[in-house]
Design a protein around this nucleic acid. Structure first.
Lengths: 185, 185
DNA sequence: GTCTATAACGGGATAGAC
DNA sequence: GTCTATCCCGTTATAGAC
């Protein structure tokens, strides 16, 4: 029997759950409900249990960041094209501010299993790619690093505000501000 | 017998726990350990259980924001003095980026009990106070609103990055950037 | 107000049939 | 690969003694 739900699809569902609830806020029962799979079936795909599931989700996030952010930022071409490619990916991932960030959610409360470290690696890669793109298009290295950090902080923070206020406007505003400042950096 | 730990002290401990672990990441056992109180004693202070405790912590955060942020921002005087008062309070609260923000932590995963709404109200008050301070010191209202939102987003996001990277530098950088832009707004 | 004890439940995880 | 059944533990919460 072919599985009714592919592992990729399962991880997609898990991604949505964890970004909303964080590691502790999602139970295996929730996951069973969202995937239509029994706990035992889940253990078939993820022998390490919930931690494995979270790790798979973070790995998916890393892959996404590589393909949708790091790679476009590294493409040769004018700065504007690179930045816009990144921002379009960001807008899509966060659905214009309606959906929270997995990175932020996963940093809250997971009993120390290296998940936080994996999240940190994603952020590091993103920062490095953005900094490099700015430098390659004429920015001075130290200023580029600052600008990259500031850009990511603004986006992350805007997602927090958007969630707290129940209004995606802060996120849209942040996208515009980030674009302006990155192009001017 | 006078209680060995005052309710205020208990809430302080709870504050630290919840900001680190979020609502779901903190158990009553953790709380018992941190406060030296038995579960039953905790129920004496917080009949509604964990939700009550979280609500008390959020209320404390609201009181803090009122005293350390809203009030200084509303004091008559030059913009610089008001902004610096706010930023000093922020730096102290977050210990220069070493400690996460309760607001962000509490937005992750709490089963819907109005806690998120209470958190949202704090953010709203803060934004309103900051916007008003900017307007009172010469900014145009729409620009002031944007600048206020941007400032809070940067600070929140910088805390996320600082946690992800295990490095408080992003937070210090954000404080400087926020100060510069708010004074120029 | 604080304790011990325990109830009642849900959590993650496993065994084994099919 | 998916299921049913079950285990064990931690969790929230309550009762009642002191």
């Amino acid at each position: 029997m072919r599985p009714t739900t592919s592992k990729d699809e399962i991880i997609d569902r898990l991604f949505e759950l964890f970004r909303q609830g964080g590691f502790e806020g999602v139970s295996l029962a929730d996951i069973g409900r969202a995937t239509g799979l029994n706990k035992s079936s889940l253990y078939h795909y993820f022998p390490g249990g919930k931690t494995d599931m979270a790790a798979a989700v973070i790995e998916r996030a890393r892959a996404w960041a590589g393909a949708a952010v790091v790679e476009p930022l590294g493409r040769p071409g004018p700065r504007e094209a690179r930045i816009d490619a990144m921002l379009e990916a960001v807008e899509a991932l966060y659905q214009g501010g309606r959906r929270p960030c997995l990175i932020a959610s996963m940093l809250i409360g997971p009993p120390d299993t290296g998940l936080a470290a994996a999240v940190g690696a994603i952020v590091r890669d993103w920062l490095a790619a953005l900094t490099r793109a700015l430098v390659e298009t004429g920015a001075e290295p130290v200023a580029a690093g600052r600008a990259a950090t500031d850009a990511l902080a603004r986006l992350q923070g805007a997602l927090v505000l958007a969630r707290a206020l129940g209004d995606r406007q802060p996120f849209e505003a942040a996208l515009a501000a980030v674009r302006r400042d990155l192009l001017a950096a």
